[in-house]
């Protein structure tokens, strides 16, 4: 059964003219890794807000259609309850630090405190997450004095410590320097093996190609394409839509156009390497 299911969903923010989501139909299954791509203003973040229940509970506006999480309509969910099911990490590393804790260790524990996790278990879980995310050396630091990249890792740690079944991650690297980006990628890679449902919005298409099981391409508030990663990223229409696809896929398509096709269109460098090698 689908964990999250959207049927003909349209949404308009208050005091705006255009719909941010138009007749969106899609579903997300448990345990899969989803990538959402598309141009800015295409509705990616709005979709995340909906899945997180921020629409319609935090953002007013007009919501029509059916959006169900675990079979229950989003309008009937309590946002507090939803926050213990769906974790959320977004762009800005600065607004994701609570500002009320004086060490990273306490900052990472904040969600667990709110959920009422017993103290001894809390300490163990925080230690484990800090180790896993490689921020063990930062636990005594004041989170309010960290760099953007470090803050983003602390933000991930706070959310991952809560151990939600689902994680919505909205462009986690868009405000980071290359080193910070690299570290966040490592976190995302480790999530790949965690059996969680992951919904990742990301511009860096190579990352999407590498990790995602399925992809949604958002355009003007609608889902333009969706399906298994390989299938979507090698679509010629997508290339013609000027949506970003991996460089190696462009290469594969160009080879086809030149009449010298590879046996398949690659989406990662490794695949391309294999395909070219097999041709000899």
């Amino acid at each position: 059964m689908s964990f999250i299911e959207l049927k003909d969903v349209s949404y308009k923010y208050p005091y705006t003219k255009d719909f941010a989501l138009k007749d969106v139909n899609c579903s997300f299954e448990k345990g899969k890794f989803y990538g959402i791509i598309g141009e800015n203003g295409g509705g990616k973040t709005t979709l995340c807000n909906l899945i997180r229940g921020l629409i319609p509970h935090f953002y007013l506006g007009k919501l029509t259609g059916e959006c169900k999480i675990e079979g229950k309509d989003i309008r009937d969910w309590d946002t507090a309850e939803l926050s213990s099911k769906i974790g959320y990490v977004f762009q800005n590393p600065f607004t994701q630090i609570s500002g009320i804790k004086s060490t990273v260790f306490e900052e990472v524990a904040i969600g667990l405190e709110n959920l009422g996790v017993p103290k001894d278990e809390m300490i163990e879980r925080v230690m484990k997450v800090c180790e896993q995310l490689d921020i063990g050396h930062l636990i005594k630091n004041n989170p309010n004095n960290l760099s953007g990249g470090q803050r983003q890792r602390v933000a991930f740690a706070s959310i991952i410590a809560m151990d939600t079944d689902t994680l919505v991650i909205d462009e986690p690297t868009s405000q980071l320097d290359p080193e910070g980006t690299e570290n966040v990628f490592k976190i995302i890679e480790s999530l790949k093996h965690s059996n969680k449902t992951i919904i990742l919005v990301e511009h860096k298409i190579d990352l999407i190609a590498q990790f995602c099981d399925e992809i949604l391409v958002m355009e003007n508030g609608s889902v333009a394409f969706s399906g298994p990663t390989h299938e979507v990223l090698t679509k010629r229409e997508l290339f013609e839509h000027k949506a970003s696809i991996p460089e190696v896929s462009k290469f594969g398509l160009a080879m086809e156009d030149a009449g010298k096709p590879l046996s398949a269109i690659p989406i990662t460098i490794e695949e391309a390497y294999e395909l070219i090698k097999e041709r000899g």
Partner: peptide
């Protein structure tokens, strides 16, 4: 954004609170 971030950290959860 702060409100959204705190919401993700179960800020409005009212089923008992523990302390580090």
């Amino acid at each position: 954004e702060k409100a959204i971030a705190m919401d993700a950290r179960a800020f409005s959860h009212d089923g008992g609170h523990t302390y580090l």
